[in-house]
Design a protein around this nucleic acid. Structure first.
Length: 346
DNA sequence: TGGGATGATTTCTT
DNA sequence: AAGAAATCATCCCA
């Protein structure tokens, strides 16, 4: 490598200016200075170029060197440069300028939203919080699951960034390698900077398609993690004893009409630390199960009825009405342990 | 570990 | 849309 790489444009400027001596095995026809001689020269050079790949490496190197030193080389090189420039330009006009990839944008947006590709904090826990909110969870017991989710997410995040870095490094290394190769080749064949640029573009596109696969699989991993997280939250937890008692108290003290209003539901929900829809679910289940098997609930009904009676007695003794949703409304203040089908349950 | 209890979900009805 | 009824999925205790 005793020469500087000569790119196409630089070389074009050199033009027909003189070139050092000939290789020993190439016949010196300069003296003839006629057209046939030059044709012969060019024919020889082209022939050698065509057969260069059939030769051994050493042989080829020697031949390459000989070609480089040939006096006709600059002229031929210029001609090739011109031809190639025209061809490349016409080819290039037809391609390139693809539209921005919508799929890639979607993946990027999702990775950002899930906190994988964005800043370290916030995103992941925000997504987790959103998931928690969406599930309408009871709360309190989910901090462990929450941190588990975050830990797994940060694991995914770490893998993603490591892989991304690896790809970028590999891409840079490969690009440098190819550029060096092209520069080296530009000594013997016309290669324009634009062509190198184009090649770099091709390499980058290839690597970005690999990156896209990485992004896709990362997205899938996040989705799986997230669905598992939501499933875990959907896991049924029995309400605590106190909550069940509050709900039962209301149910049996309103046995004649066990349909709490929205306000009553909200108050019960607050008291039991559950959601309004959970209160609705509970009453829905309770009504249907009570109705299906009144006998089984007899004992329970009696117990709550007695309790309610005691409460009512103590309330009246204090001369004030409780504003609790469990305030009995049944006639006589002692709801019948037996189901009275006078209202909605049917 | 089986089976009843129970909270949630789905489908149907009013 | 609210509730009834059926069903699913999980809990939890003997």
């Amino acid at each position: 490598m005793d020469e500087q790489p000569r790119l196409m444009h630089a070389h074009a400027a050199v033009g027909m200016s003189g070139h050092p001596g000939l290789a020993p095995h190439i016949p010196d026809n300069t003296g003839a200075a006629d057209g046939d001689g030059r044709k012969q020269d060019i024919g020889d050079i082209l022939q050698q170029i065509m057969t260069i790949t059939d030769q051994s490496l050493d042989e080829a190197q020697a031949r390459k060197h000989a070609l480089n030193c040939h006096r006709m080389k600059p002229a031929l090189f210029n001609v090739l440069c011109e031809i190639k420039e025209k061809t490349v330009l016409s080819i290039r006009g037809a391609q390139e300028e693809e539209p921005p990839d919508a799929q890639l944008m979607r993946l990027d947006n999702m990775l950002l939203a899930e906190g994988v590709s964005g800043p370290e904090k916030g995103g992941g826990s925000a997504a987790a919080a959103a998931a928690a909110a969406a599930s309408g969870g009871v709360g309190a017991d989910n901090s462990a699951e929450h941190s588990d989710y975050r830990a797994k997410l940060s694991q995914i995040r770490q893998i993603y960034h490591t892989e991304l870095e690896k790809y970028e490094q590999a891409c840079n290394e490969f690009t440098t390698h190819v550029m060096n190769l092209l520069r080296e080749q530009s000594r013997t064949r016309p290669i324009s900077p634009k062509e190198i640029e184009r090649m770099v573009g091709i390499i980058h596109r290839k690597f970005s398609s690999i990156q896209m696969q990485l992004k896709q699989s990362t997205c899938e991993a996040v989705m799986i993690l997230r669905s598992r997280f939501l499933d875990a939250r959907r896991k049924r937890r029995n309400f605590n004893k106190q909550a069940t008692e509050i709900l039962n108290e209301y149910f049996y003290s309103h046995l004649s009409n066990p349909y709490p209003s929205e306000e009553a539901k909200e108050e019960l929900a607050k008291k039991c630390s559950i959601t309004v829809s959970q209160v609705s679910n509970w009453f829905g289940n309770k009504r249907i199960r009570y109705k299906k098997n009144i006998g089984k609930f007899q004992e329970e009904a009696n117990m709550y009825a007695a309790r309610t009676a005691v409460n009512a007695a103590s309330v009246s003794a204090h001369g004030s009405q409780a504003n609790s949703p469990s305030t009995p409304n049944s006639a006589g203040g002692y709801p019948s342990p037996c189901y009275q089908p006078d209202r909605r349950i049917q």
